[in-house]
């Protein structure tokens, strides 16, 4: 009967995970960029949980890649500015490099923290935690449904594109985007029709507006064991970085 339950249900309250995550990120962003060592020390907190939860390194790397475009934008614009203002003598190359390093460290730490603290991405628990922290139930309900159906719709979109591809459609330039839009439009049409059927299926099983849960959230000692180090450690590092001048 318990074949699929080797793993005890997550002992942590999802609210604890969210609080730890938000606290960590706020502390990291608030740390003055005077020295590198606090940022490097922060990394050890998510590192432990990344190991503990066995987050796959590939997924982690992929997440870090999301930082690329905006980091490049900032590098580009700063570089441009640097070149234009060079005669004024104010910014120096080393300063610029340091600033970008700080940006990279801060954003990278936040990405590590999301991967580390959100566990294995259990959407139900996440939604329950968000609701417990005051996020409107309608919003978490929409999140849960979006999470449930995006893969399905992405696959349907893939089938539509394959079907168009089989008849010779290759999007090459911006002009092809209208055709791509028509494909996507037929996916939207199907999605809205599906939404109607899902709505019927929900009503058919007594849905009255929000997802019912039968496991109410309860704080436990695990949460304290988790929250104390997860919050105190970064706070201590931040305080130390302020003290060391």
């Amino acid at each position: 009967m318990d074949g699929d339950r080797r793993l005890p249900a997550d002992p942590l309250d999802p609210r604890a995970r969210l609080i730890a995550l938000l606290g960590f990120v706020v502390v990291v962003v608030a740390t003055p960029p005077r020295a590198a060592w606090p940022f490097l020390a922060y990394a050890l907190v998510p590192a432990f949980f990344i190991g503990y939860e066995r987050v796959s390194p590939r997924a982690l790397a992929r997440r870090l890649l999301f930082l690329g475009p905006l980091l490049l934008t900032v590098v580009g614009t700063r570089l441009l500015w640097f070149l234009l203002q060079h005669d004024s003598g104010q910014p120096t190359l080393q300063n610029e490099v340091w600033l970008l390093a700080v940006l990279g460290m801060r954003s990278g730490l936040a990405v590590l923290a999301v991967a580390a603290f959100m566990g294995h991405g259990d959407i139900n628990r996440l939604a329950q935690g968000l609701r417990g922290l005051g996020v409107p139930a309608i919003l978490t309900g929409v999140m849960e449904q979006a999470y449930r159906y995006w893969r399905l719709l992405w696959r349907e979109l893939g089938l539509l594109r394959d079907a168009a591809g089989a008849r010779g459609f290759r999007p090459r330039h911006l002009g092809d985007t209208v055709t791509l839009g028509r494909l996507t439009g037929s996916l939207l049409l199907r999605s809205l029709q599906r939404a109607e059927r899902v709505h019927h299926a929900m009503l058919g099983r007594g849905f009255a507006g929000t997802f019912p849960t039968s496991h109410p959230l309860r704080w436990s000692r695990y949460d304290a064991l988790f929250l104390l180090p997860a919050l105190i450690l970064p706070a201590a590092i931040c305080a130390a970085s302020h003290l060391v001048e």
Binding site: I138, V142, E144, A146, Y149, W150, M202
Partner: peptide, 29 residues
Amino acid sequence: AGREMGESAVPVLGVSAAFIFAAQMLNFP
């Protein structure tokens, strides 16, 4: 949203959100 759509809000907005989510992964040249 809750007032306007009642109990249809979650399924209708949820599947629409799934659609936008999927469409956001669509690259165009």
